[in-house]
Design a protein around this nucleic acid. Structure first.
Lengths: 201, 201
DNA sequence: GTCTATAAGATGATAGAC
DNA sequence: GTCTATCATCTTATAGAC
């Protein structure tokens, strides 16, 4: 087997460290030990830690792009698309209580090289563009009731999901995330006939 | 003047570093240089970095508690209380593009000593309790329209504000935060409601 | 491609002088 | 209280052997 796999393994392990510890709380040594190589070998693939970070976000953008394309291909109902989208975040929490890669890097923002920041922003914009399209389609079909522009709703949704992950993670309580999701989705989806009041408790 | 001030200055500088760089991306040396002392002096007040972190969150809880008490004392309208609360987050972004202390520590969660995590969770619970009371009062007075329990709304609001800060900060664009705030408050305030909306600039 | 060896500096922390 | 001096360890990164 070619050793090209090493590069992928380094990326995989590094991504897990970023998502659980943050970009500044893991070292080449941590990655090397988990991969079973020496730190010098990591530098062979990624000259600097910043380059590793950039590659990490670039790869992540590709993966997310493919995942969103798969959702588009498999689902037609905007509500189902949205549910699948939210599940991506939920499953990240489920596997090792990880934070979203981009959310974590957003926290590390001020310590990151510009090239990582650029890639990070593009990643957020990818999410925003996809979600905006889904919300617009849902608005036109009557699946969603938006009180603001689809773009604004998309941004709020992303922000809320990131924040919900961040806090639920710190409580090690995925229920906190799911509660937020229910509230978020409940506000978008018009109630067919009954309730929608404010006088319960 | 007693040198008790040094301790406060260390806390102030350390807090700024945590809010801008994260708990693992600043050192005793960074703090010492900014305060104008040596690292050994920091260890005199805070034996370990973990103890410094715990003191940071404990002090922050006190400050927030005082700020929320001041809002309660000065404002009666739940909508105005909420607006003042949101402004606390906004002003944090305005001063040096800082992240909320607790939000940043939530990102560093897995690398923090248990005593910091405990203090962090209590801090979130402080926010949650206060917000829940404000939302309940607003619900009873008709100032707010809630689609879920006040507690759930409070949690969603906190999560959304944290996420909105996180992302707006990574874009160095406070408008992104304000857009989210408008959407969040707009959803709580019934259309029939008069003023209070947003301080349109 | 992966290793050993090494550099040059940073890090949290401690002992003891003043 | 604050300092100097020092520690053991970690960190990113490079040079060169295999």
């Amino acid at each position: 087997m070619s050793k090209i796999e090493t590069r992928d393994l380094v990326l995989k392990v590094a991504q897990e460290f970023v998502q659980t510890r943050g970009f500044n709380a893991f070292s080449f040594r941590d990655v090397a030990e988990r991969v079973g190589i020496k730190t010098a070998s990591i530098h062979y693939y990624f000259p600097t830690k910043a380059e590793l970070g950039r590659a990490l976000v670039a790869q992540h953008r590709e993966h997310v792009g493919a995942a969103l394309a798969a959702i588009d291909a498999e689902e037609h109902d905007p509500r189902r698309k949205l549910a699948r989208y939210v599940y991506v975040f939920k499953s990240t929490l489920e596997v090792g209580n990880r934070m979203c890669l981009c959310g974590m890097l957003a926290a590390d923002f001020s310590t990151l090289d510009q090239m990582i920041v650029d890639e990070l922003r593009r990643s957020f914009e990818d999410h925003e563009a996809w979600l905006t399209r889904v919300l617009e389609a849902g608005m036109e079909s009557g699946a969603f009731t938006l009180s603001r522009s689809a773009k604004d709703e998309a941004r709020l949704l992303i922000s809320s999901l990131e924040g919900a992950m961040l806090i639920a993670r710190s409580f090690e309580d995925i229920n906190r995330f799911e509660e937020c999701v229910r509230s978020l989705l409940g506000r978008l989806i018009p109630v067919s006939g009954d309730q929608i009041n404010q006088s319960h408790n």
